[in-house]
Amino acid sequence: MIEFLKVVVITLVAVFSQLLLTKHLEYFYLLDIPLIAVVYFGTYKGRIESCVIGGVIGLIQDSISGLPLGMNGFSKTLLGYMSASASRRLVLERFGMLLGLMLVLSLTDSTIKLVLFLGTGLTIPTRYAMATLLQALLSTPPGAAAMVGLTKLDRWRE
């Protein structure tokens, strides 16, 4: 139950903090906080839970961002699965490894969304294409740092 609440709280915080921060400071859209949450859940949860949580976070993100519903949903579902799979094989205690994982997943997220844009036949604004790539790069260091912090928080709680 606590774990479920934790997932709900972190999800809501990630999604709404993104919304609120972007509202007050435009350039915060370059930071994909929900992505950090998805990767974080993937590092310690199973692949099934991770892809389900990722999918839900993605759908919520889509519903508040104005993007077509399913755009982030698809991307975050896959990323949840990927991060859970990676955590089974990689030692994520090291910051460098975490940073690398975060970078790969951020770029994957951006790529998937661009592919979906192309696949749906929507015209991609150049600004968005650049921004989503920039978002991947900029989300990596704070994402990795946030995950370290969350992991330490979990250990402290235990």
Partner: peptide, 27 residues
């Protein structure tokens, strides 16, 4: 019983695409 993760992943992805497709219309 715990299904293989792909058994969950693939339907989820298809469902996301279906949702996406319901909204997105081409020219």
């Amino acid at each position: 019983f715990r299904p293989h993760p792909l058994v969950v992943l693939i339907p989820l992805l298809i469902a996301q695409l279906a949702i996406l497709s319901l909204q997105v219309r081409n020219s």
